[in-house]
Structures are given as structure tokens and as C-alpha cells.
């Protein structure tokens, strides 16, 4: 069952255009949203979250259109950006005390569990955290209200290989709990390691949206790795 449906998103800026972006996010699956810098990943994610307004297209979660069901949908999704932190000089504990009141699904046991798992100190402020720990802090908030779908914008950017690997393992464990994970990245090995599905965007246009296996079988030439495929596809788009 699809947790999210994105249909025909279009957004025109003076120097960039998102063209007819469509894909879906399946329940209990990890979807890697890949594309080079400036390809439209963040614009797409912001459109999904109603932070920017597409010129046309529809976004729905859990079968409900975002428009008119914003509050209910946001209670069931978790969002994180890799490097941005909110209220950098407030203690995590104080931020949580405010945020948890917005969620009737807030689970203090889950909060404690992920606090331990991520080895976060709730008396620290985001400004005192490394980039990797900031990602974990955002994830902590998202997971403590039992989000059914996680939308993560470049969560592995700026992380060291160990933290990246650790984070990808967390994604896999969440997937087994039925959580849909949708994360954008430009690091192909992240996709190779844990994604079930791939949504590949280039110059504002979806080039492919399928399972990873289908993607490889459809686009691979003579035993290429996923990275080789991506680089070749990106070059062919540039040369077109």
C-alpha cells in the first residue's frame, strides 16, 4: 500500500523548473531520492510538505490530499533536514517539551529508547552537536511521535562513513517496523546499501521511479554498478 502519492508536480522558478514530478512511496520500504545538487530534490520535498506551492500537481499522504488535511497528515509524518537545526541555543529537553504537546501520538518510551540508541544528551543544545548528531536529533523528534513515514532531506550529507552506515542501519530497522523511509541523497552508495526503491531526478524531471532491482535491470549496461549507471545517465542528460 502506498503511503504517499505525488502526481504531476510542476513549479517554475526564473532559473529552474520542476517538471511533472510523479512517484509514490510504499509502506515499509526505503526509497532513495537521488539526483545531483540542484536537480530539484529539495524543491520536491518542500512541495510534499506544503512549504512551497507547486504551480500544479497533487500531493497526498495515507490517501488524503495534503490540502485540507495538513494538520492530520503532519501528525503522521516525520521530517528532517541533514544540516539545519531549529533553535540552536535551546536544550533538546526544552524543545521536546514544547514539540511533544502537538502530538497525541507522542511516545515517551520511544523517545527514551531513541535517545539512548542515538546516544544523545537531552541537556545539550543543537549548536553543541556535530552534524551527525544533529541529524539524529531531528530523527529523534520524528520517531518519538510514531511517524509512519519519514521524509529526510539529505540526512547523510556531512556525516562520516561510520555515522552514515549507522544511520542506514537505523533506516533498515525502521523499515522492518513498517515505517516508510524516503530520503534524498546525492551519495549513490547510500542507495546501493539500503534502498528498496529509487526515484531518480535530473534537471527537475523524474528520469526513473522504480524498485532498485528494476532500475538496475532496465538501465544497466554490461555489468555496471549503480554508480556507473547514474553517472552515465547524468552525462547523457547533459549531452542531450
Amino acid at each position: 500500500m502506498d503511503r504517499a502519492e505525488i502526481r504531476g508536480l510542476c513549479k517554475r522558478y526564473p532559473s529552474f523548473e520542476l517538471k511533472d514530478v510523479s512517484f509514490s512511496i510504499g509502506s515499509g520500504r526505503i526509497t532513495g531520492f537521488i539526483g545531483r545538487n540542484g536537480s530539484g530534490k529539495t524543491t520536491t520535498i518542500k512541495s510534499m510538505l506544503n512549504l512551497i506551492h507547486p504551480d500544479s500537481g497533487e500531493v497526498s499522504f495515507f490517501g488524503l490530499p495534503m490540502f485540507g488535511n495538513e494538520a492530520e497528515i503532519k501528525k503522521r509524518i516525520g521530517y528532517s533536514t541533514g544540516t539545519v537545526s531549529w533553535y540552536p541555543r535551546k536544550k533538546i529537553r526544552d524543545l521536546v517539551a514544547i514539540v511533544k504537546r502537538f502530538y497525541d501520538t507522542w511516545d515517551d518510551a520511544a523517545y527514551r529508547k531513541y535517545l539512548d540508541l542515538f546516544q544523545l544528551d537531552e541537556n545539550k543544545m543543537p549548536i553543541e552537536l556535530s552534524e551527525g548528531m544533529k541529524v539524529k536529533c531531528n530523527l529523534l523528534m520524528a520517531l518519538s511521535h510514531r511517524a509512519e513515514i519519514l521524509i529526510l532531506d539529505e540526512p547523510t550529507s556531512g556525516l562520516d562513513p561510520f555515522s552514515r552506515s549507522e544511520l542506514l542501519e537505523i533506516f533498515t530497522s525502521l523499515k522492518h517496523d513498517g515505517v516508510a523511509v524516503f530520503f534524498s541523497t546525492h551519495i549513490i552508495t547510500d542507495i546501493e546499501k539500503c534502498a528498496d526503491d529509487i526515484v531518480y531526478i535530473s534537471h527537475g524531471k523524474i528520469v526513473a521511479a522504480s524498485s532498485k532491482d528494476d532500475f538496475v535491470s532496465n538501465y544497466s549496461e554490461s555489468g555496471e554498478s549503480l554508480e556507473d549507471i547514474m553517472l552515465r545517465l547524468e552525462r547523457s542528460v547533459l549531452n542531450a
Binding site: 506544503n50 531549529w86 535551546k90 502537538f102
Partner: peptide, 17 residues
């Protein structure tokens, strides 16, 4: 300075709230 606008817009409330 604390990126409050986006922080608040992501909370589970309607944007106008």
C-alpha cells in the same frame, strides 16, 4: 535567527495557525 518559520510550519498544525 532560530529558523522558527520553517520549524513552526512543519508542526502538525495548519499553516495559518
Amino acid at each position: 535567527e532560530a529558523n522558527d518559520t520553517v520549524f513552526s510550519a512543519l508542526l502538525p498544525i495548519a499553516k495559518k495557525d
